[in-house]
Each structure stands twice: as structure tokens, then as C-alpha cells.
Design a protein around this nucleic acid. Structure first.
Lengths: 340, 340
DNA sequence: CTGAAAGCGCTTACAG
DNA sequence: CTGAAAGCGCTTACAG
């Protein structure tokens, strides 16, 4: 171990008590001008760095937040992390990362992070948590310091940040309708996923509202992956009455769909209009550039961090924001056009 | 704050000293069978969770590692993080994430993480650190607990995990050569990047060794992005003597290159063979599926974590592994073929 | 405005 | 095998 200087050392050099040094550092206004000068000089001389473990123990705060992802390898989350991290680091908090699977594999319980002073709060990006785990979290005394972002758990009472899934879907359907499409299919997300359900429900509602026919086979079950998009494309190809437009529940789905079509010599948007949801970075570069529903992932992350910090810092129950909704916007590119 | 039980509570219930409880938990073999039983019973009754802040302060260990990324939004890193996280969580360590830019923006110095007991070690995935920062890190007493992965800093003495950039490049050039290509271009990474330099040098060497002509304009300056790939494609299109094959320093470059070509009605591999480096997830799904040099990012991450943990845990200088090299492999897909 | 003192919850020589 | 005691490095009422 490397020997670093402590508050004691600073106090000795500045010829004041450790209490005064501590105050000078955390609340400079409360000490005299001359003390402030001597202490900051002593800090410089000694190269003092606060020992966070000691401060954490004393203040009963971890000064860090756990972000729980379903899957570290999914690039969808990286920008959200950036947003979270930005706000946290600005507040002097650190960001701990773990994946649901790994926590499970390690034999730990999720609540342990909060129980054992590793984290003050938790941002969960995984709506597919085990019901037992959800129940444990809800009943834990720290439940207020748990926040869901993007996804959520139906029926649970956690604070959350969500995107306008319904509005985004409505905008998508209307975009296709306005282009002249009357036969529109939907490739859904994974079974049981809350986003999948929200988007699917909104899709069904909106097509009905527009008076469109919706054949059962036009609701193509998928998940959010490229591979599922490929399978959906095969289903589309096999149809007798092919819809002229397909709204996919994610950009990855849409990309897989288009890729598979192009392997079979169908052209997008000439033969069929295809659009996605998310507006991931690649959407703009894709061939053709993908029409999509943009989610501001940076804002999602920042909002989540902000809401959680408010909860971590307020001891009482005050009037905390409980649910934030992040607006989405339609981004029109070249993968959608009027039907021929 | 939520009241949780402490070692004291357990000791009281089990009717032993806190020392004995602590021993039972950390080193069960050293206590008697009956003590073990009573303590674990008491732990269950009280719902005891260790307080990590207290343990960290006492043991002078943070039990966490900082991973520094150049950019949180780059999906290239996510699988590496997964590898790191796997090993760390298995060792009971947490993973802290920060980006170079954010650390800088927050006014903190990188070394602070090690100095202030937030992290025991550091895995740096950014070879482009400011020279001043590098110097500070090198001269810090904790320099042994800093490890570079993927990228590195030329001339610096940090431990590192690197991929076979030269061998991968050689395999790429020889793959194209074996297909019959004699005019091969290279789209490079960003100026000043160590990976760019390693791959470019190896490319120049290998084409020379094979007796190929390498015109200056066939070394196309890029960075690792899609956008740079598009620009490189425009450069290729504008050439009088177009090379029949292009080796790109990253998959993103290759994808941008191919995308731009297809906007101008060139076909890959019919008109030109194109390959990348990295074998990111999308490479397989791309159209056409991309020939690439595969880096095992999970292994990179796991190896980095393993090496760093060895350094964190050994007090002495022992014979620590100082440089690990991760093998790469050529993955042949449909974006490369014999020239027509 | 400042200091003496207690204490956050652990671990670990030391003694028995 | 077990316990009493010290101490990791801070912060914060309390008293002056």
C-alpha cells in the first residue's frame, strides 16, 4: 500500500484540528479567511486526498450508484450510460455497473448492493427481472432508491423514466398511413417485454382508429434482434397478401428485415417500406437510411440519474418526481416511401 | 437511512465476540464447528450484511476497479466490459466506469481514483491519454496497478493486454493475396492511434514482403468510424487505377466503405473485395457478410481483469505477467472474393 | 470560528 | 479456538 497523507497530516501542518480541516474542505464558508488559507496551503504541501472509504463509513453513504443492465453487450445501453455517468460524476458520485445475469451467477442478491453500503441507489434497465427479485426489491426498505429506466415492471411501484412508446408508435403508423399505406404489418419485440406490449397495443389501437385492416399474420412475433428481423422477413416473403409497409419494434429488427429482403432481391422502400424504433447510431448509415422513432438516450440517462439522486439525497418522502416521460420523435429517412 | 444489523448484533445473538464473527465469515476453517453453527444461525436471524465501507476502510482496499473508456458510446467496448465484469464479480470486486472526457470535465485527476481509495486498480482502454496524464500515472506509486488493454501508450511502461495486430494484418493481406489480389489498399485508423500505426506498419511490411506495388494513394487516411469509411470509398471511386481489394482497419470503416459504394452502384465483392478488423457483432449480419479479423473481446476483458487482480493482490513485485497478447483469427465471409 | 471527543463497522495482531 | 482492544480516516454534535 502506498502511504498517502491524511486529515491528521494536514491538520498538523496547518496547525489546526482535524475538525477544522474537514470543515474547510466541505464547507469553506464556515471558517475564517486565514484558516482557509493555511489549510489549503497545507493540503497542497501534503498532497492530501480524501479517503472515500472513511468518509463513506462516517457519512453512511456509498457515494455511488449501481446501474443494472440485462446485458452488457447490447450497444443500445451505452449512450444511456453516458447520460447517467455525466450527471453522477458531476455530483461526485461513481457509477457501478453490473448485469442481471452476473449478479445472479455470483449468488448475490440485487438488494445486497444497497444493503451492504456499496451503492446508495440503483437504476435498473431491465424490466425482465425475476418476479421474486422484484418482490424483494419492492419490500425492501430502500425501495425508494430504486428507479427503472426505459423498461419497467407492470404493477410495481418503483419510480421510473419511460419513453413515449405509444406516441412513438402512433407517429410511426401515421407516417406510413400518410404515405398512402393501408396494409401495415408490425414485427414485435420479445414476448413478455413491456416495451413490446406497449408498442404492440398502440399499433393495434392506431391501425383500428385509422380504419385499417389488420390480419393476424401481420403481427409478426419477434424479439429486438437482427436475427428475428431476418425471420420476420422470411415470413413476409411467404405471405400471399404482402403488406406494403412494416413497422418494426426496434431498429435492429428493421435492419435484419431489410438485410434478409435484400438477400432475396427485394428492394426497400420500392417493394416495401420498413421502419424501426430507437434511432440507434447505425440507423442513419444503414442502406437505405432507416426511418425510425428516435429515443433520446442521453436524456433518458441524465433524467434517470437526476431523479435517483433526488431520492438518494432527500431523507424524507417529500414530493419526489415519480415518473418521467421522455419525448420521442419521428425521423424520416429513405426506408419508407409511398407504395407503388 | 435504513437500520441494518452489524457484526455487533450478530455477536450478541451468537454470544461470541465480534472478532469471532468476523473470523467465521472470512475464514470459517479457523473456528470450531459449534461456533460456526451458532454464528451462521445468528447471521440468518439478524439478516446481517457486511458493511463494505467499514471493511474497505479497515483493510485499505476499495474492492473495486476503475475501467476508463475513451467514449462510453462506442459499442466496441461493451463486450470487453462484460469480460472484465465477469472476472471481477467472481472475485468479489465491483466495476467502476468512467470516460476520459468526463474525468477531465469533472476537474479530477485520473490518479485520484487510486489515491482516494475509490479503486484499487485501473484498466485503461484509451491509448490516447494526454501525455501529461500518462506521465503522472507512470510516476505515481500506484503505477503497477494500472493496466492498458487493447490500446497502449508507446514508450510507457504499464502492463498491457494487446491483440495480435501485426499478425492479424498479415493474415488479412495474405487472405487477399491468396484470392489473387495484387493491388490492395488500406484504410487506416485515426492519426496518432497506436492500433492504426501497428496495422498500417504491418500492412506496408507485408505488401512489400509479397512484392506488391503499394501506391501512396492506396494508403487512405481514416479513423475507425463509418463516416470515414464513406469518405474512403469516395476516394477509391475517384482513383484511376482502382485497387481490387481494400483492407480496412476496422469493421465500421469497412461498413461505411461498402455502404457508400453501394450508393454508387458498385457491388462488393464483385467490383472490389473489402474486409475489416475486429469482427464486431454486426459483421456477420452485414450485407454482404463481412470478412474480418476477429478479436476475442471477451477474452481481452477477462485477461485484463485477471492480470490486474494479480497486481492488486500481490503486495510485492513478484513475477507478474507484464504483457499478454491475445490471438486474433481470420474470419472469411462474403465480402472478399477473387478479382474478376 | 474552533477544538476535543466520540463513533461509523469492520479486521487483526496479541495474548491466553 | 477465542476475546479484548486498537485503529482504519473521516465527520459532526457539543461546548466554548
Amino acid at each position: 500500500m502506498v502511504k498517502t497523507s491524511t486529515l491528521q497530516d494536514v491538520a498538523r501542518v496547518a496547525k489546526v484540528s482535524t475538525a477544522t480541516v474537514s470543515r474547510t474542505l466541505s464547507n469553506p464558508d464556515v471558517v475564517s479567511e486565514s484558516t482557509r488559507r493555511r489549510v489549503s496551503e497545507a493540503v497542497k504541501v501534503t498532497g492530501y486526498r480524501i479517503n472515500r472509504a472513511a468518509r463513506n463509513l462516517r457519512t453512511q453513504r456509498a457515494h455511488s450508484v449501481l446501474v443494472l443492465l440485462p446485458d452488457l453487450t447490447n450497444p443500445f445501453f451505452s449512450t444511456i450510460l453516458e447520460g447517467i455517468s455525466r450527471h453522477l460524476s458531476q455530483q461526485g458520485y461513481s457509477m457501478l455497473i453490473a448485469s442481471t445475469e452476473q449478479v445472479h451467477a455470483s449468488g448475490e442478491r440485487l438488494i445486497d448492493y444497497l444493503d451492504d453500503a456499496r451503492a446508495d441507489g440503483m437504476i435498473v434497465l431491465d424490466g425482465g427481472l425475476d418476479p421474486d427479485v422484484v418482490e424483494m426489491l419492492e419490500n425492501a426498505p430502500q425501495a425508494k432508491r430504486i428507479l427503472f429506466a426505459c423498461e419497467w415492471v407492470d404493477g410495481a411501484t418503483f419510480a421510473s423514466v419511460r419513453c413515449q412508446n405509444r406516441q412513438g408508435t402512433r407517429a410511426a403508423v401515421n407516417h406510413l398511413f400518410d404515405l398512402g399505406h393501408r396494409n401495415i404489418a408490425h414485427v414485435t419485440g420479445p414476448v413478455g417485454n413491456v416495451l413490446m406490449q406497449a408498442r404492440k397495443d398502440a399499433f393495434v389501437d392506431e391501425t383500428k382508429k385509422l380504419g385499417l385492416i389488420l390480419r393476424p399474420e401481420w403481427l409478426i412475433a419477434g424479439d429486438f434482434s437482427l436475427a428475428a428481423g431476418c425471420l420476420a422477413a422470411q415470413a413476409w416473403i411467404a405471405m400471399h397478401n404482402r403488406p406494403t409497409a412494416v413497422f418494426c419494434a426496434s431498429d435492429q429488427l428493421a435492419m435484419g428485415f431489410i438485410s434478409e429482403l435484400s438477400r432475396h432481391d427485394f428492394k426497400v422502400p420500392k417493394d416495401v417500406s420498413v421502419m424501426g424504433f430507437d434511432d440507434i447510431d447505425l440507423a442513419e448509415q444503414f442502406i437505405p437510411p432507416l426511418t425510425s422513432v428516435r429515443q433520446d438516450r442521453l436524456l433518458i440517462g441524465e433524467t434517470a440519474a437526476k431523479m435517483l439522486m433526488a431520492r438518494v439525497k432527500t431523507p424524507g418522502d417529500d414530493q419526489l418526481e415519480h415518473a418521467a416521460v421522455i419525448p420521442v420523435s419521428l425521423v424520416t429517412r429513405e426506408s419508407t416511401a409511398a407504395p407503388k
